[in-house]
Amino acid sequence: MSIDAFAVIAEPTRRRILDALCGSESSVGELVDALGVSQPTVSKHLKVLRDAGFVTCRTAAQQRIYGIDTRPFQAVDGWLEPYRRLWTRHLDALERHLDSQE
């Protein structure tokens, strides 16, 4: 995955937008009301998230509804994979240690 995707989700307000959209699809107005930030701020961050592929948009009754696109998150998840194995190795070591105590 590209460095840019990490830069996108490094911004706290953008993560709050993603958290809200993870719960349910939302319009801009719903996000403005839910997050307590201004409409221009929500709109600007939504554009960055859309450009980076984290957020999709569909139109219903002349209203744009925003939602999560899971694909960039799979890339983030893939980046984490070797670190998860690291964690498993530590657990294995703990288990061996406990075995040796018996």
Binding site: V28, G29, V32, S38, Q39, Q63, R64
Partner: peptide
């Protein structure tokens, strides 16, 4: 000019 019609009243208020 904006992408969301829903945003227009908010832009007007701003």
């Amino acid at each position: 000019t904006v992408a969301d019609r829903e945003v227009v009243p908010m832009v007007a208020a701003g």
